[in-house]
Amino acid sequence: MANDPIHQFQITRLVPIEIGGLDLSFTNSSLFMVATVAAAAGFLFLTTANRGLIPSRLQSVSEMSYEFVASMLRDGAGSQGMRFFPMVFSLFMFVLVANLIGMFPYFFTVTSHLIVTFALSMLVVGTVVVYGFWKHGLHFLNLFVPSGVPGILMPLVVMIEVISFLSRPISLSVRLFANMLAGHITLKVFAGFVVSLGGMGALGIGGAILPLAMTVALTGLEFLVAFLQAYVFAVLTCMYLNDALHPGH
């Protein structure tokens, strides 16, 4: 069981809660959501507590993450997009910290569950749709009608646009989920090789060096992926929000 690469994604109940036939237990996943939020919020809160005019190193980290997301949003959705800044910043920090916490051995990765990433991407797309209709009314549907397309092609293009819009939450959530899942499985498999080869005597220990090196390299790669996926999630969020702000291409 220790070698089962899927075991790390197992959800176990810590505090069973059941309301009206719904299993709402506080699980290890919930625990790590709380840990993610506490770590991210705590870090941002404590490092900026001094409000230093000249930032300390840690305050610089908080300010850099703020400015990183702010410039991302400004580039992606214009200065009007800044009204969504708290949401994009929360999403980025939540995904990033969840991914990074998942890198600790024996820790649970919140973002390796499709339902979590799907919920987050539905939050984005839901915001786009609700804000788009609220702000532009039916003009929001111009999003699906690119300008400068000949009349004959219009039904086809509109159909493609609609399909691409509908696939957004799926691609957004599956990208993050699959990256985290695959990365952790790969890490576990190679780490498992080290253990099983190491148990096979002197020759096995020699042979275990290769997967060990691989595990070390993959760990570095996974840290990159952890950051990169949070970044990609935030960038795509900015692009989608741009559609809500400026639907007429």
């Binding site: 959800i11 299993d23 709402l24 237990s25 699980t27 919930s30 939540f94 339902i115 919920a119 987050l120």
Partner: peptide
């Protein structure tokens, strides 16, 4: 596990 995950995600997030 979806209901529990969604609930706690909604609360924490």
């Amino acid at each position: 596990t979806y209901a529990s995950q969604l609930l706690w995600l909604a609360i924490t997030f």
